[in-house]
Design a protein around this nucleic acid. Structure first.
Lengths: 151, 151
DNA sequence: GTAACTGCAAAATATTTGCATCCTT
DNA sequence: AAGGATGCAAATATTTTGCAGTTAC
C-alpha cells in the first residue's frame, strides 16, 4: 500500500491513531518522532532523529520513546555493520513486540538513506542439517533510485 | 573446506602465516586475537574478545587490532540488530578491505554463537526498478545444531 | 636504527538510571 | 487524582585520540 503525499493533518491523525491503537499517551514528543517516520520513506538512526527534532526534546526522551515504539511493535530495528541501529516503521502485521518483517532493507551508499523494500520478499533459504531458522534478515547495499546516475 | 581439530602449533603457524601474508608485524596481541578466531567457528564481538584475552591486553589494542584486521580483509563485520558488531574470519577471497562474503550468517538464539554458514549462498534478489545492489547481507536467527532439542 | 605496535591517560561519545516534576487521561 | 511521560543530573559504558615507551624486523 503506497501512500500518496499526505497533508500535515493527515500525518498527524495517523500518528494519533497509531498511539491510540497501542495504548500510549498522546504526547508532543511521541507525535513529533512518529511524524518523522511517517513523513518519509527512510529508516532513521537515533542520531538522525536527534538532529531533526532539534533541541526541543531531551536525548533521553528519544531513547525511551524509540524503545517504547519497538516494544509495541510500531517500529523495528534494522541491523547495520557500522554499529548504528536504524529504526523503521513496521507494517500492520507487526504487533506487541513480535515483528514479522519479511521484507528486504536497502541502504544507499550515496545518500545513506535506508529503505524498506516492502515488495522484495526475503527468499527461502536451505540451511545445513541441524539448523532451524525462525527469522531471516536481509540488508542490501547499493545505489537507490534517486541517486542513480542519469543518462 | 572444513578443518579438523588442529593442534596449538598448527593454529599458531596459521596465525603467523596470516599476519605475514598481510604484511603485518607478528606480535603477541595479534596472534592471541587471531587464535581466538581460528580456534572456533563462531563470530566474536569486541566484548567477547576482551573477556577471552583477560587482562593481558589493553582495550585500546583490541580496538586497533580489530580495525587493522578489517582493513586488511582478515576479518569482516556481521551486522546485528542489538548494536553489537561481531567479527568473523574472512575466507580467502577477501582481500585488501574488499570483502566478498556471499555466505549467510546464523545467530543462535540459545547459545548466542554466530556462525558463518559458508555453504549457504546469498540468494539472488530482484530489486525494484532503479535500485542497483552491490552487496547483500543475510543474517538468519534460529537454533543451531548444537542447541537443537534432542529426541 | 626505524617504523610499527602497544599501553596509558584522557577526551569524546553513547547509553542507562534515579528522581522530581509535569502532563495525559 | 493517578499513572505515565519527561527533563535534568549523574552514573556507566563505549570508542577515539595523543603521546611516549617498547618491540619487530
Amino acid at each position: 500500500m503506497i501512500m500518496a503525499k499526505q497533508t500535515v493533518v493527515q500525518i498527524d491523525n495517523q500518528a494519533t491513531e497509531i498511539l491510540t491503537r497501542n495504548n500510549l499517551s498522546i504526547t508532543g514528543g511521541r507525535k513529533r518522532i512518529l511524524h518523522l517516520f511517517l513523513e518519509q520513506a527512510g529508516a532513521l538512526a537515533h542520531g538522525d532523529i536527534e538532529k531533526k527534532v532539534g533541541e526541543k526534546f531531551d536525548r533521553v526522551t528519544i531513547y525511551r520513546t524509540l524503545q517504547t515504539f519497538v516494544d509495541k511493535g510500531i517500529i523495528h530495528t534494522i541491523p547495520t555493520a557500522d554499529n548504528s541501529i536504524r529504526y523503521a516503521l513496521c507494517k500492520d502485521e507487526c504487533s506487541g513486540g513480535h515483528h514479522h518483517d519479511h521484507h528486504v532493507h536497502f541502504v544507499c551508499t550515496v545518500c545513506h538513506i535506508t529503505y524498506c523494500l516492502d515488495d522484495v520478499v526475503t527468499p527461502a533459504l536451505k540451511f545445513p542439517k541441524g539448523y532451524t531458522s525462525s527469522h531471516v534478515e536481509v540488508v542490501a547495499e547499493g545505489v537507490c533510485r534517486n541517486c542513480k546516475p542519469q543518462h
